[in-house]
Computed example of a mutant assay.
Amino acid sequence: MDGITIREATEGDLSSILGLYAAAGIGDSGNFTAEEARAHFSRLKQYPSFHVFVAFLHEVPVGTYELLIMDNLAKRGRKSAVVEDVAVDPQHQGQGIGRAMMEHARKQCQEASCYKLTLSSNLKREEAHRFYEALGFEKHGYSFQIRLQD
């Protein structure tokens, strides 16, 4: 879609990112104070292969996602990647923003020579599952978790 740009997030994007998470119903990020968000973002920026991206539609922030590219000891050291916390402003869903972000993630992974890109999605989010499948993601195995905190 014309008008969509995606770039790595800066500290100045934090309030927009937290707003996108809240609008999309992701986590309780709205409880971060501005100071806490800056401190957390600063810590994340120290991870060499962890990136937060923001999507803009005509210079308005409308989406965000996180990408972790990992070095692996298995698979002869080939890298893999995980997409996390994908959020698109509900008012802008269905306009190609999520597709553009996932294509952006795929390109980042290809440039890093990753052998796979993974993500997980809550079992209840059937519409999201159809979206990811339409982008070429395939169901693979199971995702397991242990809740350590509420």
Results as ranks from 00 to 15, higher is better:
residue 123 L to H: 07
residue 58 H to K: 12
residue 48 P to Y: 04
residue 19 G to R: 01
residue 66 E to G: 08
residue 77 G to C: 05
residue 14 L to C: 02
residue 80 S to E: 11
residue 26 I to W: 03
residue 69 I to H: 01
residue 124 K to E: 15
residue 132 Y to N: 01
residue 89 D to G: 05
residue 150 D to T: 12
residue 26 I to N: 04
residue 34 A to T: 09
residue 91 Q to V: 10
residue 61 P to Y: 06
residue 36 E to H: 07
residue 22 A to W: 06
residue 59 E to R: 14
residue 140 H to N: 13
residue 34 A to L: 08
residue 147 R to N: 11
residue 92 H to P: 06
residue 74 A to Q: 12
residue 106 R to Q: 12
residue 148 L to E: 07
residue 86 V to D: 02
residue 15 S to K: 15
residue 48 P to W: 05
residue 95 Q to R: 15
residue 49 S to R: 11
residue 60 V to Q: 15
residue 41 F to E: 01
residue 63 G to W: 01
residue 97 I to N: 01
residue 149 Q to A: 14
residue 67 L to M: 00
residue 35 E to C: 06
residue 58 H to G: 07
residue 39 A to Q: 13
residue 57 L to I: 07
residue 98 G to C: 03
residue 60 V to I: 15
residue 50 F to L: 12
residue 62 V to T: 13
residue 38 R to W: 06
residue 26 I to D: 03
residue 113 S to H: 09
residue 95 Q to V: 07
residue 95 Q to W: 12
residue 32 F to T: 03
residue 9 A to C: 05
residue 75 K to L: 11
residue 36 E to Q: 15
residue 109 C to N: 00
residue 15 S to G: 06
residue 33 T to A: 03
residue 147 R to M: 11
residue 23 A to Q: 02
residue 61 P to Q: 03
residue 22 A to P: 02
residue 85 D to G: 04
residue 52 V to P: 00
residue 70 M to K: 08
residue 39 A to I: 09
residue 9 A to D: 00
residue 49 S to H: 15
residue 34 A to D: 09
residue 83 V to T: 00
residue 113 S to L: 12
residue 86 V to R: 02
residue 147 R to I: 15
residue 74 A to N: 12
residue 110 Q to D: 11
residue 40 H to G: 09
residue 81 A to Q: 00
residue 104 H to I: 03
residue 121 S to G: 03
residue 59 E to K: 15
residue 132 Y to Q: 03
residue 59 E to L: 10
residue 39 A to L: 08
residue 70 M to E: 07
residue 49 S to C: 13
